[in-house]
Design a protein around this nucleic acid. Structure first.
Lengths: 310, 310
DNA sequence: TCAGCTTACGGCTCACGTAACAATA
DNA sequence: TATTGTTACGTGAGCCGTAAGCTGA
């Protein structure tokens, strides 16, 4: 068996079972790919593709299993290259972090500042996106890892490390009547117009679900993807904001009052996610360690750590 | 990069960095291996071996990392072969189970009986050994998986599945004075000559530790690797036996009296262990499922399952 | 001097490209 | 007929083997 054959297999599947396209993608002619596939099938003694006459129209069950291992095999080969590249370009290269706006704005700055001090020559890229996009980016190696709260459970190819937990708080203008309640309950919140995150971001689905479970419904008058926009509209008097508490910054937001709501909502866990079989370069590992250390020092962990790596 | 090169790398390390031996092992001449290693090193751009002049005397740090991925890569390739072999020889082949005497004698029979009914043409091999040997066998693929209680935590390359829990009981001849105690305590046990397992088997180390923690010391007059021998000497009147309760069989051992001691000792967890990256054939998976189902039906689980896969 | 690795060179295998053929839509 | 896959065949890259050259022990 040759790596060449596994590459052909993958290219073929990724190009809709079209040998010509796969060959073009590999900078080869059709016949070359055709031959490699034949060799692989004859060595294994099992057809890997479903054929209508000569035309390939699908993959067999065995083919699918082989394909999975072919991906892993080539990923390992890529890791070997990465290891040596690491050695050759130590302290150089780049670090591509996938993060939501909340992470990038409120959590990452202090970590990145420390990182830069240690690795001044590494180019840092912060890729923003929705949690779904970040998961995709991590899977397709468009980023080295993604930091997010949602949408991580779905993919089996990702390894996730729980980093910290957060919960919500309400922010309001100082004269807002909601602040006169001694303790703020869910029922009480439904009386006020709310500004919070859009679906898919920063725990919005859990937010909504919490009300639904109690048979309640929050009056969300505006939802936004990031906290700064929420604050802006709260300042405009559109309503009270419900945000991740970590996004309330005493110094900058002194015109707004923040009240903790962690008694009302479940704690959310933010995780770092990266490809399961990916080789982690030293500076990547350093960043992860730094991130964990930093959030730990900030006391951002609530409750017990559930052992949850797959 | 070529698989050939990774094979050379591995062969070289496994033959004490001796190119000639490695080549002989691969049925090649020295120069061939030498060339492949050169190619690999020049492609990666990093030396993988430590040299004294021309002689190889060790592996570099990078080399070690590359080696790890080389093993994984070739393991994946082997898995691909295994997948197709599976398809070609469905229902044939063999199942190689590593087990201690206790497993083989008291737990496996009913599982194996069911397995044979479903896969009559599969050759069954039960490889016995000490837990340490079984772990080694699993790692070196001398068995498909090993079933044991000890020595599993040590190796990172093994995946382990908790299967069932067991604890100890005392067995004694009906007229033995120990049976007159209403409840048997650790202190009480120290008064009697004890026959139990040797170190490394069936929880012996935990057994000893339990006494030590209480500042006690059991008077072990004879230790053996398997329960049948312990029973034999108990019948000879040498002392009272302390065995895994599951090894007391009402029908066969009616001449001996069994008293449960699970209040005194920690529960032990028996696990199935196999290579992390190994491809599991259908009949292997079937056996594992059958084993789990059977011990579960027998109610052999005590307490909560700790999520413990690595 | 021996054991052991590298380098040079030649034969041979085999992967790829060209091209003719086959089959499907 | 256009598109796509297979088969046949020639060429060239490269792998392995032989053998000569180095280099420590």
């Amino acid at each position: 068996m040759e790596l060449r054959q596994l590459k052909s297999l993958i290219a073929l599947v990724e190009n809709g079972y079209n040998v010509s396209h796969a060959a073009a993608r590999m900078n080869l002619v059709q016949s070359a790919v055709s031959q490699q596939i034949s060799k692989l099938e004859s060595e294994l003694g099992v057809p890997l593709f479903v054929r209508h006459g000569k035309r390939l129209i699908g993959i067999t069950e065995v083919g699918q299993e082989v394909l999975n291992y072919a991906y892993r095999t080539l990923a390992n080969v890529e890791n070997i290259r990465e290891i040596s590249r690491e050695r050759l370009t130590q302290g150089e290269g780049m670090l591509r972090i996938g993060a939501t706006h909340t992470q990038a704005r409120y959590i990452l700055p202090s970590v990145i500042k420390q990182f830069r001090a240690h690795y001044p020559d590494i180019e840092l890229q912060v890729h923003q996106g929705t949690p779904e996009q970040l998961v995709e980016k991590a899977i397709h190696d468009d980023v080295d890892f993604s930091i997010c709260t949602e949408a991580l459970a779905t993919h089996a190819d990702l390894l996730t490390i729980p980093c910290y937990q957060w919960n919500r708080g309400v922010i309001a203008q100082a004269d807002n009547p909601i602040l006169q309640h001694e303790t703020i309950s869910l029922e009480c919140l439904t009386d006020y117009p709310i500004v919070t995150y859009v679906y898919g971001f920063t725990g919005r689905s859990v937010f909504t679900e919490t009300f639904t479970k109690q048979g309640l419904k929050a009056k969300v008058v505006l939802s936004a993807a990031d906290t700064d926009i929420i604050k802006t509209y709260v300042r405009e008097g559109l309503g009270v904001g419900i945000i991740a508490s970590l996004a309330y910054v005493e110094e900058q937001d002194s015109d707004l009052v923040h009240r903790d709501l962690s008694a009302l909502f479940p704690w959310e866990t933010t995780r770092i996610a990266y490809q399961k079989d990916k080789y982690i370069r030293h500076h990547q590992q350093y960043f992860i360690d730094l991130f964990l250390k930093t959030v730990q020092q900030q006391g951002r962990w609530h409750g017990l750590l559930a052992a949850s790596e797959a």
